[in-house]
Simulated scan of single mutants.
Amino acid sequence: MERLNQYRVLWILVFFDLPTETKKDRKAHAKFRKEIMQDGFVMFQFSIYLRHCNSRENADVHMRRVKRLLPEKGHIGILTITDRQFGDIELFIGKEITKRPDTPQQLELF
């Protein structure tokens, strides 16, 4: 088995802009958000959710799940980046620099 490293471990980012003008739209928005969170995505910013994956194969599984959950309306983007790339992120609250989210510890059983 290949050792986990900063170039093999991936982060999936899901960006979305969904309509919320009607009750049906709001329901679809809430459902999509709830379902991706049930799949392990956490909110990074208001309409940006991310998930840590230990391999490309694991990331592919979660990207397929997101694609099956896509609502009929709206704009959705899915992006994968390596842990190394994510490690270069600079985060601020106002002008104050803050630390990036911790890499979750995930146990994988084979």
Rank of each mutant, 00 (worst) to 15 (best):
L10T: 05
E72W: 07
K31L: 14
M63S: 03
M63H: 01
C53H: 01
N54M: 09
P71F: 09
D60V: 12
K24T: 10
T103A: 07
R3A: 12
G94R: 11
E2L: 05
M37A: 13
G87S: 13
L70S: 08
I78R: 00
K31M: 15
F86Q: 08
L4W: 14
H29C: 12
Y7P: 01
D88R: 12
I12Q: 01
L50F: 05
E72N: 09
E96R: 13
K99L: 02
I93D: 09
N54R: 07
T80Y: 00
F44K: 03
F110G: 00
S47E: 11
K27Y: 12
K99Q: 12
R33M: 11
Q105R: 07
L109P: 00
Y49V: 04
N58G: 05
G77Q: 12
K27G: 04
D17A: 10
E21D: 15
R100H: 03
R33F: 00
E57N: 07
D17Q: 05
N54S: 11
A28M: 09
A28H: 11
P101D: 04
R3M: 11
T82L: 01
Q85H: 05
D25H: 12
Q45A: 05
T98M: 10
D88M: 10
F32D: 10
N54H: 09
F44N: 04
R33T: 14
L107K: 07
N54D: 08
L79S: 08
D25V: 07
M1P: 09
L109N: 01
K73T: 05
E72H: 05
F110R: 03
R26C: 07
R8E: 11
D102Y: 00
G77H: 07
D39P: 00
E108Y: 06
L13F: 12
P71A: 03
P101C: 02
N58C: 09
L107P: 01
E90R: 09
A30N: 15
H29E: 09
F16D: 10
A30V: 03
I89E: 03
M37D: 02
L69V: 03
K95V: 09
R33D: 02
A59Y: 04
N58A: 15
T103I: 14
